[in-house]
């Protein structure tokens, strides 16, 4: 019996799908059997980010209306065998699925997998209702922006009202240099407002764009700091005790010396 976790944010574009792809892959690399479910019906993205677009034959809509067996609709990842994707329908609309139907699918997936990660759409409407219907835990993704934090706060309130109490926070696109200049909230400001448990901070990484476009989750890039952060989040999610490192601002001086002497 696995665990159903919804990854949500309220605000769009903060990195929900990226987080699902990377954490899902990292968990699978830890040897867990993982299904990632794209709940963004009508605007499916997760298959592209994971590089599985061309392999999708059936989607969750086909499973719900009974035209396909659940097992058959799961797409196996190209690299990690125990990672599966249940794609969303691009033709349908969020209102075509009821929370109960989504819940049934997720609970069935839970029986045969260790982790069911649900990629929630942005917003607080039916798409979110569908995505969170079966969730027993939630990862809230936010960027250190006032507006993203505000929306995350709203989502947390809604999840708590639905009695999802296992809530953990991912601070994404964290830029220590901007924090140092005072242009960005630091993690303490964010946690001060949201007051839930922090599961990880993912530093800003420009290569995330390329990796999403190529359909190759960043996690395979061993040199990426963001990849390391996602790997640590996956391990924490799996119950390991991994400390959150302090991300320090890099000035030109330390940057040069770092490059010269291989310091980090």
């Amino acid at each position: 019996m696995g665990k159903v976790i919804v990854i949500t944010s309220g605000k769009g574009g903060v990195g929900k799908s990226t987080s699902v792809a990377n954490i899902g892959t990292a968990l699978a690399m830890l040897g867990k059997s993982v299904v990632v479910v794209d709940a963004d019906i009508g605007l499916r993205n997760l298959d592209i980010i994971m590089g599985l677009e061309s392999r999708v034959v059936y989607n969750s809509m086909d499973v719900i209306d009974g035209s396909c067996e659940l097992e058959k609709a799961l797409v196996t990842d190209r690299r990690v065998e125990n990672l599966k994707l249940l794609a969303a329908s691009q033709r349908n609309n969020k209102t075509d699925v009821q929370p109960e139907q989504m819940k049934d699918v997720c609970l069935k997936l839970r029986e045969t997998h260790d982790y069911v990660l649900i990629d929630s759409p942005a917003g607080i409407e039916q798409g979110f209702e569908n995505a969170s219907s079966a969730a027993e835990a939630a990862l809230i993704v936010t960027t250190p922006d006032v507006s993203a934090v505000r929306d995350a706060d709203r989502i947390i309130g809604l999840l708590q009202a639905k009695e999802v109490s296992d809530l953990q926070l991912i601070i994404n696109r964290f830029a220590p240099n901007m924090v140092k200049k005072g242009d960005m909230l630091n993690q303490y400001d964010v946690l001060d407002v949201l007051s839930i448990k922090l599961i990880g901070i993912v530093p800003e990484d420009p290569s995330i764009v390329g990796s999403s476009n190529r359909g190759l989750p960043l996690i395979y890039d061993a040199t990426s700091e963001a990849a390391g952060a996602y790997k640590r989040i996956a391990r924490r999610l799996d119950g390991q005790d991994v400390p959150v490192p302090e991300f320090k601002a890099i000035g030109w001086f330390s940057n040069m010396f770092g490059k010269l002497f291989g310091l980090d």
Partner: peptide, 25 residues
């Protein structure tokens, strides 16, 4: 309890005492 963004407590009568935070929104 604390009030998060979007949550409203409205009482047209009497004093309101809140043990917790009232978050932005």
């Amino acid at each position: 309890y604390s009030l998060r963004s979007g949550q409203v407590e409205r009482f047209f009568e009497g004093t309101l005492i809140l043990f917790g935070d009232v978050n932005p929104g």
